[in-house]
């Protein structure tokens, strides 16, 4: 039930952002109807769970984002420098990252964070490892991955946090 409520609130907020017509009662009620319908459809499709409706946990992700973006900016500059240098020196590597967060959701945040930082792409996400392709060998440092994984776990609220 909680998922349904938070999903419909999020969808109603989405409608308000999209619509921009707050004076029309008709459109507002249609918006309410649309968000309820989307929740109904999600229920019908059996996808009404914390993965579809993680909106009650989003605030913790906001704490993770600034750090992630700092990483993204740093790696972006490195990659662009490599791309624009006259002779591109590449040292591609494939590595297995074994230290993963426990929950699926945190793992997915971890995998997407790896992909989001240019220079590393998560190639495969398995039950016990992520295979990562890195374009420069400096980017395959085990400790860096471990640090990021720990932050992802924290961002999803693992280890002694609420939820």
């Amino acid at each position: 039930m909680g998922y349904a409520v938070s999903l419909s609130l999020a969808m109603a907020a989405l409608w308000l952002v999209l619509s921009g017509h707050y004076d029309s009662t008709l459109l507002l009620s249609i918006g309410a109807g649309a968000s309820v319908f989307s929740v109904f459809l999600a229920w019908r499709l059996h996808i009404l769970d914390e993965e579809t409706s993680p909106y009650h946990k989003v605030w913790r992700l906001f704490l993770y984002w600034p750090w992630l973006w700092w990483e993204v900016i740093k790696t972006n500059i490195t990659i662009v420098r490599t791309i624009l240098s006259p002779d591109m020196v590449l040292t591609p590597r494939m590595v297995r990252v074994k230290e993963l967060p426990r929950t699926d959701m945190a793992r997915i945040i971890f995998a997407n964070s790896i992909t989001l930082t240019p220079g590393t792409v998560s190639v495969d996400l398995d039950d016990d490892e992520i295979i990562v392709h890195a374009v420069l060998k400096e980017m395959t440092n085990k400790n860096d991955f471990a640090a990021m994984g720990a932050r992802c776990a924290k961002a999803w609220g693992e280890k002694g946090s609420l939820s």
């Binding site: 999209l18 459109l27 989307s38 999600a42 499709l45 993965e51 959701m105 997915i108 997407n112 996400l125």
Partner: peptide, 25 residues
């Protein structure tokens, strides 16, 4: 595919609401 599953699940209700927005506007 865990990643595909989660992102698609996030997107499906959003696409539906967006469809209704397009319809009624």
């Amino acid at each position: 595919h865990m990643v595909l599953r989660v992102v698609s699940k996030l997107l499906i209700p959003v696409i539906v609401v967006y469809g209704f927005y397009v319809h009624f506007h």
